[in-house]
Design a binder for these strands. Structure first.
Lengths: 143, 143
DNA sequence: ATAACTGCAAATGATTTGCGATCGG
DNA sequence: CCGATCGCAAATCATTTGCAGTTAT
């Protein structure tokens, strides 16, 4: 398959998918799959956790929701797809929305954003490594 | 317990811990616990995976190694504790060391660092949320 | 029709933990 | 000594998957 294969797979508009999407978008929090499952269950008592996982995958794949893989925790999901950052409170553990990165602030030790006192950050790049730029084979040895 | 409780717990210098640490520091890659287990096993045939996990925890807790919780993957470990960033290749999946962040480059769409073509990044803050700054109780409800 | 989708239950895979034995300080 | 640590095995926890029945298009 060609690079950049964005063939949208055929999707069906099932009530499960619709309700999972609706409920997620109605939240300002960042629920885990299980938390969202409990919420969705109120409207669809027979829904399964597997269906929630599968639909979150599909919605994420289609760019309709955001999947947050934050350090050392289960995945959390966000109905807001506009680019923004997240911060986890070191005291209560909650994940908060934070405004888009302001690069100049990284020079400082501790800055404030929307009342959130930022003490640290973790930055993870993605892209193409030197080897794969030359010879894009699957070299899945040393990670 | 007081904030900033850094009581160093009493540690014992076991051969297992020593060898796990040595082998990790001797690698330029970022092994998972299982990968490191296989390596350590060559010198300690009777070591258990649980011991590797427990020692990696201890070493991380004591700041002797770095634990990488990269998006959607098992944890990887790094013997280099000097601050630096990591990038995952979207083609081969390998994790690479990258130089410390250069904030100005974030303005661009695609930049290069040490031959690694950076196409995206994920930023995760940590700090104190507005509520906890006022009333630092454990409010572990909505995350 | 037919392939995407569902609920259910079992499987998976990473990590943690209980336990009785061991051993470092 | 004695409690930190070990090996081992079982447990846990999030997530995925196989399957047979269902349903959207």
């Amino acid at each position: 398959m060609p690079i950049g294969n964005n063939h949208r797979k055929p999707r069906r508009n099932t009530p499960q998918r619709q309700i999972i999407f609706e409920e997620l978008c109605g939240l300002k929090t960042h629920p885990t799959a299980s938390e969202l499952y409990e919420i969705v269950r109120k409207r669809l008592p027979r829904v399964s956790l597997g269906t929630v996982y599968r639909n979150l995958d599909v919605l994420h794949e289609d760019g309709l929701i955001v999947k947050l893989d934050l350090a050392g925790h289960e995945a959390r999901f966000d109905g807001i797809v506009e680019p923004h950052c997240h911060g986890r409170c070191t005291l209560c553990g909650k994940v908060r929305d934070l405004p888009e990165i302001d690069p100049r602030k990284f020079e400082m030790n501790s800055v404030e954003m929307n009342g959130f006192l930022i003490q640290g950050f973790k930055l993870e790049y993605s892209g193409i490594c030197p080897e794969c730029r030359v010879q894009p084979t699957n070299c899945l040895k040393e990670m």
